[in-house]
Simulated scan of single mutants.
Amino acid sequence: MMDFDDQDDERTLKEKVEKFQMGLICRATGETQLDDHVFIRLRQELLQEVAIANRLPDFVRRCRNNDQFWQFIKAKFPSYAERRKYIWDGFAPTFEHLEAQHRGVAIPPISEALQTFDPAHVTDIWQKALDRRLSDPDGAITAARTLLETVCKHVLDDAGETYPSNADLPKLWLLAATRLNLAPSQHQEETFKAILGGCQTIVNGLGTIRNKIGDAHGQGRNPIRPQPRHAELAVNLAGTMASFLVSTWKEKYEGKIG
């Protein structure tokens, strides 16, 4: 039986939609239903998500609580099977959109790398960055930087390296990269030095874009508002840099290289 009061199963937007859909199916078929406060909270949160609000079924917008949905669904279909199919079909466009957002070429390998590194924490930050790209670009950019900062700190902690508590992202990256032999100054081959230098430039840029247009700092009367494309770029870059660190860390600390 699903625990409809447990918010631990709502770490991603897709999981919220799944929980709400299941709650509606349970209500429509006489099983344990969502408590009204959970129904109202989830409904409001989903309707506030710009990325999916227009893709939600009409009955989500029309039915504000369990009783309204029950009156609607029992009058529309007499059988449980018809009700289930109607709800599943209604949410299909929402799930298709959410799943399409996570089928980018780079996203699955990044997700897999981060999952093996620290599934309890790092993966949650990565998921938050992915979920917010369209609906909350400010938050996605902030999450992207937090992801990189967290991965750098994990690498340094595991290596037994100390770092200043107020170290910014470029400093953390340099310390972690140096520990993993990824600093440009540690190599002689010019092409490789250029690539590693480019990584440092990307990290510096992520820090700058977050400071300029992320939601970590207040802005004046003419704030710079990031667009979803800016968030998409920041999240993809942060994910790529984070997975690069993780892959190198795994090789080094699993004894594959010296």
Rank of each mutant, 00 (worst) to 15 (best):
Met2Pro: 13
Phe4Asp: 03
Asp5Lys: 15
Asp9Pro: 01
Glu10Pro: 02
Arg11Leu: 15
Leu13Gly: 01
Glu15Phe: 04
Val17Thr: 00
Glu18Asp: 14
Glu18Cys: 09
Lys19Arg: 09
Phe20Thr: 06
Phe20Leu: 05
Phe20Gln: 08
Gly23Met: 09
Leu24Ala: 14
Glu31Ala: 11
Gln33Phe: 10
Asp35Cys: 06
His37Met: 03
Phe39His: 14
Arg41Lys: 15
Arg43Ile: 10
Glu45Ile: 10
Glu45Asn: 09
Ile52Arg: 04
Leu56Gly: 07
Pro57Val: 04
Phe59Met: 04
Val60Asn: 08
Val60His: 10
Arg61Ala: 15
Cys63Lys: 10
Arg64Pro: 02
Arg64Gln: 14
Asn65Asp: 15
Lys74Tyr: 08
Ala75Gly: 01
Lys76Ile: 00
Pro78Asn: 10
Ala81Gly: 14
Arg83Ala: 05
Arg83Cys: 03
Arg84Ile: 08
Ile87Met: 14
Gly90Arg: 06
Phe91Asp: 01
Ala92Gln: 14
Thr94Trp: 12
Glu96Trp: 01
His97Asn: 07
Glu99Arg: 11
Gln101Lys: 08
Gln101Met: 09
His102Asp: 03
Arg103Leu: 01
Arg103Ser: 07
Val105His: 04
Ile110Asp: 04
Ser111Met: 00
Ala113Tyr: 07
Leu114Asn: 09
Gln115Met: 03
Gln115Glu: 05
Thr116Asn: 08
Phe117Gln: 04
Val122Tyr: 00
Val122Gly: 02
Val122His: 01
Thr123Ile: 13
Lys128Ile: 07
Arg132Trp: 00
Ser135Leu: 07
Pro137Arg: 08
Pro137Thr: 06
Ala140His: 05
Ile141Asp: 13
Ala143Gly: 06
Arg145Thr: 04
Thr146Tyr: 02
Leu147Trp: 09
Thr150Met: 06
Cys152Phe: 05
Cys152Asn: 02
Lys153His: 02
His154Lys: 11
Leu156Tyr: 01
Leu156Asp: 00
Asp158Cys: 04
Ala159Thr: 02
Gly160Trp: 02
Tyr163His: 02
Leu169Val: 02
Lys171Gly: 01
Leu172Trp: 09
Leu174Gly: 04
Ala176Lys: 05
Ala177Leu: 09
Thr178Glu: 12
Arg179Trp: 06
Arg179Asn: 15
Leu180Ile: 09
Leu182Gly: 12
Pro184Asp: 05
Gln186Lys: 12
Glu189Cys: 04
Thr191Pro: 02
Phe192Ala: 06
Lys193Phe: 00
Ala194Pro: 03
Ile195Val: 13
Leu196Pro: 15
Gly198Met: 08
Gly198Pro: 09
Thr201Met: 12
Thr201Pro: 01
Asn204Lys: 15
Asn204Ile: 07
Thr208Ala: 11
Thr208Ile: 12
Ile213Gln: 08
Gly214Tyr: 03
Ala216Gln: 11
Gln219Ser: 13
Gly220Arg: 12
Gly220Asp: 07
Gly220Ile: 02
Arg221Met: 05
Gln227Met: 10
Pro228Tyr: 05
His230Met: 08
Ala231Asn: 05
Ala234Glu: 14
Val235Arg: 07
Val235Leu: 08
Asn236Cys: 03
Leu237Asp: 14
Met241His: 12
Met241Glu: 15
Ala242Thr: 08
Ala242Trp: 02
Ala242Asn: 08
Phe244Ile: 15
Ser247Cys: 11
Lys250His: 14
Lys252Gln: 15
Tyr253Ser: 07
Gly255Ile: 09
Gly255Tyr: 07
Gly255His: 10
Lys256Ser: 05
Gly258Ile: 13
